[in-house]
Design a protein around this nucleic acid. Structure first.
Lengths: 345, 345
DNA sequence: CCAGAAATTGGGAGCGCTCCCAATTATTAC
DNA sequence: GTAATAATTGGGAGCGCTCCCAATTTCTGG
């Protein structure tokens, strides 16, 4: 394979060089049948040592396929820049794209103006074969606007409105339920929670899991033990400061970052973790393992989640859009030190 | 603007609907002169309420422009998934793309096999107008391979080999120099450093700045005070454990994350920050402000850096490729608590 | 060895756009 | 009013590919 490919190589040119027709070269490239072995090899040799690659735009124009999918991160996903969750997710998505030979287009919506610039680009014909959109906040109409395009769409996380749309999500309710059940099992009496950013599906599901776990054990819900966070470290810190007067002996934080922020507030208040306040987080991002003490948490298979999302979308693209696909992935309780699991020994 | 655009709208169709020719509609869309005002308005009205958008693939095919740029993150940039630096950078890049109406293609190279899948995709004709590539490690041949494509390329960070290539970087040498000078000024005697991952330009530049600052004040370099990290929290932690026996009274870490890891090791050793060991980091990512104590650091304008990189690339794309552009951005010393700046008062 | 079927090959049409140039219309000067 | 020029407008060609169908070649069986 020569490393300097003629930039102006075309199908026609390859055909000429290998002494066959355009059509035959096309068949070889697209691995279609009805090409004799010797011709196929001759053509392949020419392709190899010219370094020819078909022009994507031309292929897209006629086939109506771009082999590119978009990932849209709505404005309301403000924690993109602080939460290690997103790089991991991106990794999974990128890997899924690589595996299936799709290209990933990234559409970060920062401001309202961005939205007006990004949407037309996403919906542009000849641009994308499908779209992955990160589930955002209630009131964010981006998902609806995307779903109204005639493009395959998969929502990453639960969609908030429509139920005709395909999505993939983690079982947030059972994850939170397991986290809190674990704390109950360890004998904690006043279990508080720091919620995610209000208005998101993950936030309300994790809160629901928290409540269900308490109710299942006959505990009463105490509103003073429930305080709003925003998925960030700083948010967890402030939330914990609000929570401390309610004297929780354990806290379920709806993200690891908030758990770490919460632990910081607890330490600053002169209390010990887990002796005075135990913690369980959610996500199992890598900082959970380096926290002090190491954080007990609910692991979600983030990268796998991204890869699966891509696969669902590609399935939708290649095999039609009905019925909507719905995937829920399970979580896993990872017991480390912050929950005080060992103090009972 | 009707929200349900006919998906099969074409230039020809718009022409028919507005009673003019294909060419005239094309002129209106591309804002070319030589269209009478009333015709222009009539056509624009039709475009508006059909929601017509030109087919990208068709435009790309004839104009040889895709209005899409790629961001390539080489395999050797392993800290992508842990360092908050990258999301910020991505934000800046995405914003630059939005502003200039370009689409961003993301090419994460995870494995060697990824590289073989990604490169052909990047070089595919009709795909990208230009490429941004994150500077990686020595021995990573990805940059060279990309530069050999006939595509405009801008390296984000200093390129390691070629000097024909355009790049944008932050002044790592002077940043590190200022960090260490600050520590010297505060009277520290045994100033250690935790370097980045060996083999990267940022790593060697920051080390060079460290050494220059010491030499400028007539200090001797003590190899036992220089220890290798890898830009991660865990790397900083282990590096600090190696560094502690050399009894440093201050440490310059080549990233905030490593500074935070280093501080964790110091605390675990029963020492106080900054009384026993002072710290200065590099980057000023948001966790620096939430660290305990708050981290003195060298701020680099990460998002702006990304936006600038996009602008240089677009300049290259639209105004030709010679001569190579070279931009160096300045850093800023942000004094917080971890350097003990106030203990001399 | 030849008709008929099967496999292989080639070329035209067309995807939706931009560019060029020719045709038409409007404007100006005399 | 007419010739000259300038401003508009329209249509053909072509970007590089895939798809379809017709033409050619190869392979059967009797």
């Amino acid at each position: 394979m020569s490393s300097f490919a003629d930039p102006n190589l075309t199908l026609e040119e390859i055909a000429r060089l290998s002494g066959v027709s355009r059509s035959t070269v096309s068949r070889v490239i697209n691995q279609q049948p009805n090409v004799s072995d010797d011709v196929r090899q001759r053509v392949q040799a020419v392709i190899e040592d010219t370094g020819y690659q078909p022009n994507l735009a031309a292929q897209t124009l006629v086939s109506k396929r771009s082999w590119m999918i978009g990932l849209v991160l709505p404005r309301s996903v403000s924690s993109f820049f602080t939460d290690p969750y997103f790089p991991r997710l991106l990794q999974g998505i990128a890997q899924g794209c690589n595996q299936h030979d799709y290209t990933l287009g990234l559409f970060l919506v920062g401001t309202k103006e961005d939205e007006e610039k990004v949407l037309p680009r996403v919906s542009r014909k000849g641009m994308l074969d499908g779209v992955l959109i990160q589930s955002g906040q209630i009131g964010d109409q981006l998902i609806d606007r995307l779903v109204n395009l005639d493009l395959p769409v998969v929502v990453v996380g639960s969609p908030l409105h429509s139920d005709e749309v395909s999505f993939i999500d983690v079982d947030n309710i059972s994850g939170a339920y397991n986290a809190v059940s674990h704390l109950i099992r360890l004998g904690y009496q006043r279990i508080g929670t720091i919620t995610g950013l209000p208005g998101g599906a993950a936030t309300s599901d994790r809160l629901e899991g928290y409540e269900k776990a308490l109710i299942a054990r006959g505990r009463n819900l105490d509103q003073s033990l429930i305080v709003e966070g925003d998925f960030t470290e700083a948010g967890g810190y402030y939330a914990m400061q609000q929570l401390l007067p309610a004297k929780p002996d354990a806290v379920f934080a709806a993200s690891d970052l908030m758990a770490i922020g919460g632990m910081r507030a607890v330490r600053e208040a002169g209390l010990k973790i887990p002796q005075d306040v135990a913690f369980v987080g959610f996500d199992d991002v890598s900082v959970a393992r380096y926290a002090n003490p190491q954080l007990t948490t609910i692991r979600q298979p983030i990268a796998q989640f991204g890869t699966n999302a891509v696969e669902i979308l590609i399935d939708l693209i290649e095999n039609g859009i009905k019925p909507a696909r719905r995937i829920i992935m399970e979580t896993e309780l990872i017991i480390r030190d912050s929950c005080g699991a060992s103090r009972r020994n």
